[in-house]
């Protein structure tokens, strides 16, 4: 039903490093789970004409970044959580790299 290549494609999309054992286990898990959740196929209706759920937009007035924002004044705490920092900067990897 689902192949090892499928699992590897999904893992790449999900940015997950998986061991070979786990890939094999997931093939089996997926089989059971997808068969079960596949029951929804029986539901009638066109998925392109979904009923509109009773939701509405929640708007608020524009406000200055300030008192009611929970992280205001928490700069140091946020910086302290960085895996790697230099002063007040986060150290991140260079994205553009030389071709190998």
């Amino acid at each position: 039903m689902i192949s090892k290549t499928d699992i590897e494609d999904l893992a790449r999309l999900a940015r997950l490093d998986l061991s070979e054992t786990e890939k094999e286990a997931l093939i089996k898990d997926f089989e059971g789970i997808l068969e079960y959740v596949g029951q929804v196929a029986a539901v009638s209706g066109d998925v392109n004409q979904k009923p509109i759920p009773p939701l509405r937009n929640v708007m608020r007035d524009d406000a200055l970044y300030g008192a009611d924002v929970p992280t205001t004044g928490k700069q140091e705490a946020l910086l302290a959580a960085l895996p790697k920092r230099e002063g007040d900067y986060a150290v991140v990897r260079k994205i553009i790299q030389k071709e190998a």
Binding site: I2, I7, L10, A11, L13, A14, L16, L18, E22, L26, D29, F30, I33, L34, V37, G38, V40, A41, V43, G45, V47, N48, K50, P51
Partner: peptide, 25 residues
């Protein structure tokens, strides 16, 4: 990890309607 994989699967373009679309209905 299993749930991230499942979620990625049901949201992927080939399966989105069959799973997520139907589930929403």
């Amino acid at each position: 990890r299993r749930r991230i994989m499942l979620g990625t699967y049901v949201l992927s373009s080939g399966y989105y309607d069959a799973y997520y679309g139907k589930a929403t209905l």
